[in-house]
């Protein structure tokens, strides 16, 4: 006998995914705890510069989760498993949480809560402007990710949430712009982003081409937007 899909997702897959998504923040907390000799957990240390490391872990986690979120639709289309969509909201909200943690690590440990320096950075440094813009957009999407907001926004909900494509581009750009010289890793992120956005563009084009041919003999209706 197979378990019902609702039960499988609600009691197994989702809690499991939730725990996996907590791993980076748990690692950072354990690393700080170890460094302060409060905890003695067997985790890889955060090294001589835990602040920079923390920024990196949170930033990478946000980008990784955004890219995984963007993998859900292609995977559903490739496997035909529509249930995968049930996991997407959690992935997206976690991506936002890590982006927020990345920002808070920057505000507190990295900048020492210096409001003037932070404002100057956001205003003057293009890569920080990009990252901050992406964070604000991501927060808007996380806030409107609830069922209530989906109902309230109706059709516009999907339009709004297409912002995720802008966010991932800004996020990868933000990363690219701050490395000193070695762009191999940002390039990898950019390639995966290009692949995921390219897939969507290609499918959209193919779909339009299909509907154009099938509509060939039909009387033309005013295009709906």
């Amino acid at each position: 006998m197979t378990m019902r899909t609702d039960v499988r997702y609600g009691f197994i897959y989702k809690p499991l995914l939730f725990l996996i998504c907590l791993v980076p923040v748990a690692w950072v907390l354990a690393g700080i705890g170890n460094a302060l000799a409060i905890t003695h957990l067997p985790v890889p240390g955060l090294g001589a510069d835990p602040v920079r490391r923390m920024l990196g872990i949170f930033g990478h986690s946000a980008l990784n989760l955004l890219l995984i979120t963007l993998c859900v639709s292609p995977l559903r289309q490739l496997t035909g498993n529509a249930q995968l969509l049930r996991l997407r909201r959690m992935l997206g909200v976690f991506a936002c949480c890590y982006a927020l943690l990345h920002f808070l690590a920057y505000v507190g440990p990295f900048q020492g809560f210096d409001a003037h320096a932070i404002a100057a950075d956001i205003y003057k440094r293009p890569y920080i402007t990009l990252g901050f813009t992406a964070l604000l957009m991501l927060l808007a999407l996380a806030i409107t990710s609830t069922n209530g907001w989906m109902r309230r926004l109706g059709r516009r909900w999907q339009q709004l949430h297409r912002l995720v494509y802008v966010i991932i581009v800004l996020g990868v750009w933000h990363y690219w712009w701050q490395v000193k010289k070695d762009i191999r890793e940002p390039l990898l992120y950019a390639s995966v982003t290009a692949l995921l956005l390219g897939w969507r563009w290609w499918r959209r084009r193919a779909r339009r081409a299909r509907s154009a041919t099938s509509n060939y003999a039909l009387p033309t209706a005013p295009e709906r937007t």
Partner: peptide, 13 residues
């Protein structure tokens, strides 16, 4: 400003 490596978590700047 600069961050002094090894200073406390919030006192590096």
């Amino acid at each position: 400003t600069e961050r002094r490596i090894g200073a406390s978590l919030f006192g590096q700047r």
